[in-house]
Design a protein around this nucleic acid. Structure first.
Lengths: 154, 154
DNA sequence: ATAGCTAAGGTCAGTAAAAGTCAAAAAGGA
DNA sequence: TCCTTTTTGACTTTTACTGACCTTAGCTAT
């Protein structure tokens, strides 16, 4: 139930929360040692849990003195939040990214927990797949954008 | 009278009763071993005895470190009304009926105005028609029920 | 300068470990 | 008997993890 990827995710998010800046810098090999895993697992965690859809931006540099920088994008500093969110969603969005975006909206206090759950339910993979075997990601994007617009307007 | 499904049901309900939280997490394969049955029997038990209508909500994750989480909804007398409304939705619902149902939920103070707007947006005709010219009413019913059930949590 | 070494991080495909689906077979019950 | 519920298992999908091989950046000795 607590797989390594979840532990790494939590660790990085705690670092971010404790940091005074909006980003952190880590070393891939350090993390791999700390969590007794292969280095490439760090990349796995980054792509599955720190994607743009989840509200993060990852930069890195190789070579000696290399690093991985994880930036937490601040939603509340966006000039036009609705447009930006719709751009992030795009024409198609995976369930994982949708979940990340919704929980982010909740963390940033744009929506309540109940509202987050409502939105999750509407774009849930099982819900959508029941009706549309294919193109679930497109449908999810359409519904998610409609909800984002409705709740952030006003 | 003592079939395996009943035993599994009782076991899970005892776990829930003994738990300090309102949910439990189990592993499907563990249960299958414990009760000497095939893993898919667990799914059978979940769908026949732990549905929303029975007052439960089931989430799960696949892959290594996967789990099944069973949430017990604490239902008050008002929950019956919600479940009835959910049953009324059925397999298919028109936009105007959906709107009626949503405003009813709001009038009965089950949901806030913002939540009502959110739900309206998700099942809006234009939104759904964009993606599915046909079967829009079926899709609307599926999404609406998922959202209605979600408000039973919390 | 620069060739070459070293120390980072990246990619990708393959394997393993879960849970899900579906329909057929078996068992019960009225 | 006939219908419903339970049980089974073959096949699928999703998620996590691993390792071999690749790329990039800095450093150092010539």
């Amino acid at each position: 139930m607590d797989n390594i990827s979840d532990l790494i995710e939590r660790y990085l998010k705690k670092l971010l929360a404790d940091s005074s800046k909006e980003y952190i810098e880590v070393q891939r090999s350090d993390l791999a040692v700390r969590f007794s895993c292969v280095p490439s697992q760090i990349n796995y965690v980054l792509t599955t849990r720190f994607s743009a859809g989840h509200g993060y931006f990852v930069e890195s540099r190789r070579g000696s003195g290399g690093y991985i920088r994880i930036v937490k994008l601040q939603l509340d500093q966006r000039a036009d939040l609705i447009l930006d969110l719709c751009a992030i969603v795009g024409d198609s969005i995976s369930q994982s990214d949708a979940e990340g975006l919704i929980s982010r909206l909740h963390e940033e206090k744009f929506i309540s927990l109940r509202e987050a759950r409502l939105m999750q339910a509407a774009v849930d993979g099982n819900t959508l797949r029941l009706s549309m075997p294919v193109r679930g990601d497109q449908l999810r994007a359409i519904i998610l954008k409609a909800m984002v617009i409705s709740i952030l307007r006003s």
